[in-house]
């Protein structure tokens, strides 16, 4: 009974909130909607490269990522659940339909592996760690994105490094399975293990 009441209260509150949201939207200036995926995606090129192929050194390539992954990321940036320097400010400008269009566009592009420097002496150890801790979801050495995971092989190292830091600090949420494995790897090899992983991913060009 109590449960029911609480649910009802939440529902009503949610509804009220929803209505306020609509009222605000009405006050906002009406803008022309319906830009194509291409038109929307072309505005991303200045930072992420033409068709999402980044020349680095920091901004990740987004062309050729999984559609669901892009949607999740954009939603996370928008809500603030995924930390970012700038993407949170930008993602708020897109509604679900537009995020969907962007995801369709970029997932349809070819992923361009980064041409970057890496510590060749760390690659073998990184490969070993990857196979033990990461390969199950980030298959084929971090190339495969069929499980709607992020692309690791060939992604820009500074970005991978920043993402690992965000995961490890708890600022960026991860699945229980990933959390367990990341912690295990860190407990065993420390930050050096992550450096080795990054060298392995960067070596795949």
């Amino acid at each position: 009974m109590v449960m029911k009441t609480i649910t009802r209260v939440l529902l009503v509150a949610g509804l009220a909130f929803g209505t306020t949201g609509i009222a605000n939207a009405k006050d906002a200036p009406k803008t022309l909607m319906g830009a194509s995926g291409q038109a929307l995606a072309d505005t991303c090129a200045g930072c992420h490269g033409t068709d999402g192929s980044s020349g680095g050194p920091g901004t990740p390539s987004i062309g050729g990522l999984s559609k669901a992954y892009i949607v999740d990321l954009m939603k996370g940036f928008k809500s603030g659940d995924i930390p970012s320097t700038i993407m949170g400010r930008i993602a708020k400008g897109y509604n679900a339909d537009e995020i969907g269009k962007l995801a369709v566009f970029f997932s349809g592009q070819k992923f361009a592996a980064a041409k970057q420097k890496f510590d060749a002496t760390k690659v073998a150890a990184g490969k070993k760690s990857h196979e033990k801790y990461c390969e199950k979801c980030h298959a084929d050495g971090g190339v495969n994105i069929e499980d709607d995971t992020g692309r690791l092989a060939g992604q820009w190292s500074p970005y991978v490094k920043e993402s690992i830091a965000a995961f490890m600090s708890g600022a960026r949420p991860m699945t229980r399975k990933m959390k367990k494995r990341m912690k295990k790897l860190h407990a065993k090899g420390g930050d050096a293990a992550f450096e080795e992983l990054m060298a392995y991913y960067a070596s795949q060009q």
Binding site: T31, A45, G46, C47, H48, G49, T50, S54, G55, G56, P57, G58, T59, T85, I86, R89, I90, A91, K92, G93, Y94, W156, P158, E162, A165
Partner: peptide
């Protein structure tokens, strides 16, 4: 419809990342 500035309380790490992203911006 959205946007804004780097927050004034941004950490050193964020400011350093933004510098890296600035160089990427130029390249791209």
């Amino acid at each position: 419809v959205s946007g804004g500035l780097t927050p004034s309380n941004a950490s050193k790490g964020v400011l350093a990342s933004e510098e890296t992203y600035a160089h990427s911006w130029y390249k791209n």
